[in-house]
Structures are given as structure tokens and as C-alpha cells.
């Protein structure tokens, strides 16, 4: 496994009004090449600080970060990097094409390939005519897309994206997710920070969760979700007391008005409950699986379990 991004015991302390705030407390983890890695954490957890250290916008107090084996303080570490900041903003007086041309040149792209590359990216991002429009006339979603095009213009090996789908409509979001998956299939690495957990669930191979500057988990998405206990809740309208008694003998049942809810902690118990209800009289209103979601795992890890959907 080759490593695209490495954080090695990175510490960062800010001073705010005379107080010291430890933004990163010895962050260490690796992002393997060719994977999409979701970087999750509540606001103020240290995600943006970590990304900014990786791009040498700010300096760590201790430890080091690397991109493709090169220390992040060396500008060469950014030769194979495309970056989209959380709120992308660029000079509105430039037309989309002029902007992309500028960044292609700054990224060292060959002039002969630039025109074709710009057209290709604008086409992929579903804005083929936007190259001739000034950025100041773009919508929020278009601005974000041109920012993504800028990150991709030099065909980098590593993409660092901070909230890439912010401000985009559902179709554009789906298109971006498809694009990121395609990039992964080409062997590119995507390091993605977002608050939209469903995006991570849809496309990420691995998830790193951070809170209060500390890494709480870094794991393959499947492994992370399997470690989460699932439970099932079955709501039904019982036809008599017998079915309730049979279920209560094995499971937890709560009754509100004429609706009963039975909770099972595993698939076998769920099957037992469904069979009992159907056999002994009851109209099933709904079955809900809770627990095995990234949201619940995330909430548990960041100690906000009370907000999970099984509570």
C-alpha cells in the first residue's frame, strides 16, 4: 500500500485572546493512494487546520505532514495536488476559461494540452458554456464547480477537497460523486472533508473521524459500519393481548395508545418478532433498522449519542 497523505504526530496550538487552544493534539494517520477518504468531524474539530497544515498554509508546532512522501513545507509536495477550499472564491473579473488557463500554467500544465483539458472539465461538470462567462456572474453552485475544475486542471494525483458539494443542487452533487468515483478508478486519491455524511457513505472507501483535535477512528467504511450494533424497531397494531405477551417474553415492547413497538437487537430476534406478529394477530405498520449508519457511529464517537436516530 503506497501512502498519498501522512500526518505524523501533528500538533497545532492557536492563541485566542491570550488563551491557548490546542487545535490538533498529535494527529497521526495515513491516507492510502487510490482511495477516497472521508474526513469527518464536528465544527471546530480540527479538520480545516489539518488540511491547512497539509497545504502549508499554516505551520504545525510539532510533527509533520507529507504528500506523496514529500514534506508538506516543501512546495514540490503540491505538484501533484488539487485543492478546493471550503468556500471557493476567486476574482470575478476573470472569465472561467481565463481563470482555468491561469491555474493550468501555475500548475505547470503544458500549454498545448490546456485548451482541450478546459473544455473536457467544463463538459464533465455540466457547464460547457461557462468558460466565456465572468466568474462574478456565476451562481454559487457554478462557482464551486469552477473551483473544482481548477483543482483538477493539472490532472493531480491527490485531490484535497473541503466541502466540495457545498451550494450545489442534487444533480450537480450526483455528478460530482460520479466524477470522484471515476477519479478513484484512475488511481487518484481523494481526501474529502464534508458534513454531508451520506456523501461519504456513498463514495468513501475509508473514513477518518476527528474531534477536539484528536483522531477517534480511521477505518474502512465497511468495517466501521459493521462494528456498529444494529437494532430493529417494529411498529404494529396488536389484535389482542396474546401477541404482546409472547413478544414480551423475549423482547422489549412498548405500547402507546393502540400502537405497540417491539425492539430487537439482532436479525434473528427481528425475524422472530415479525413471525409472532403475523401468526398471532397484528397489523405491521413499519420496520426500521437503526444503528448501522455512519451518522450514528459518528455521533457515538463524538459523544453526542443522544442525537442518534435509535434514541
Amino acid at each position: 500500500m503506497t501512502v498519498a497523505i501522512r500526518f505524523d504526530n501533528v500538533r497545532k496550538t492557536y492563541r485566542e485572546r491570550g488563551n491557548r487552544k490546542e487545535a490538533l493534539k498529535g494527529l497521526s494517520f495515513e491516507v492510502p493512494s487510490g482511495e477516497i477518504v472521508g474526513f469527518l468531524g464536528p465544527n471546530g474539530a480540527g479538520k480545516t487546520t489539518a488540511m491547512h497544515i497539509l497545504l502549508d498554509f499554516i505551520q504545525a508546532n510539532e510533527g509533520r505532514a507529507e504528500i506523496l512522501g514529500i514534506d508538506s513545507r516543501d512546495p514540490r509536495s503540491r505538484e501533484q495536488v488539487g485543492f478546493l477550499p471550503e468556500i471557493f472564491n476567486f476574482d470575478g473579473f476573470l472569465k472561467g476559461e481565463e481563470f482555468l488557463r491561469l491555474f493550468a500554467r501555475l500548475g505547470g500544465a503544458k500549454q498545448s494540452q490546456v485548451t482541450g483539458r478546459i473544455a473536457e472539465l467544463l463538459e464533465i461538470l455540466d457547464m460547457p458554456t461557462a468558460g466565456g462567462i465572468k466568474i462574478r456572474n456565476y451562481s454559487k453552485g457554478m462557482t464551486q464547480k469552477i473551483g473544482l475544475a481548477q483543482a483538477l486542471i493539472a490532472d493531480p494525483q491527490v485531490l484535497i477537497l473541503d466541502e466540495p458539494t457545498s451550494g450545489m443542487d442534487p444533480i450537480a452533487k450526483a455528478r460530482i460523486k460520479q466524477l470522484l468515483q471515476k477519479l478513484r478508478s484512475q488511481g487518484k486519491t481523494v481526501f474529502l472533508s464534508t458534513h454531508i455524511l451520506s456523501d461519504i457513505e456513498d463514495i468513501a472507501d475509508r473514513v477518518a473521524i476527528i474531534n477536539n483535535g484528536e483522531l477517534l477512528a480511521v477505518e474502512k467504511l465497511g468495517v466501521l459500519l459493521n462494528s456498529e450494533q444494529s437494532s430493529y424497531r417494529i411498529a404494529f397494531q396488536p389484535h389482542g393481548a396474546e401477541v404482546i405477551a409472547l413478544l414480551q417474553a423475549r423482547l422489549s415492547v412498548s405500547i402507546e395508545g393502540d400502537i405497540a413497538t417491539v425492539t430487537s437487537q439482532n436479525r434473528a430476534d427481528k425475524d422472530f418478532a415479525l413471525e409472532t406478529i403475523l401468526r398471532h394477530g397484528g397489523d405491521i405498520i413499519g420496520v426500521k433498522q437503526t444503528g448501522a449508519s455512519l451518522l450514528n457511529k459518528f455521533l457515538k464517537l463524538v459523544e453526542h449519542e443522544e442525537l442518534s436516530d435509535d434514541k
Binding site: 497545504l55 514540490r76 495536488v81 476567486f90 500548475g107
Partner: peptide, 14 residues
Amino acid sequence: RDGTLLTFAARPIA
């Protein structure tokens, strides 16, 4: 102030 400096600084430029 605009945040556009970050886009430049993310390029391989010293």
C-alpha cells in the same frame, strides 16, 4: 481577505 490567496498558495509555488 477574499480567500483567493489560498488558491494560489495551494499551487506548487514557494
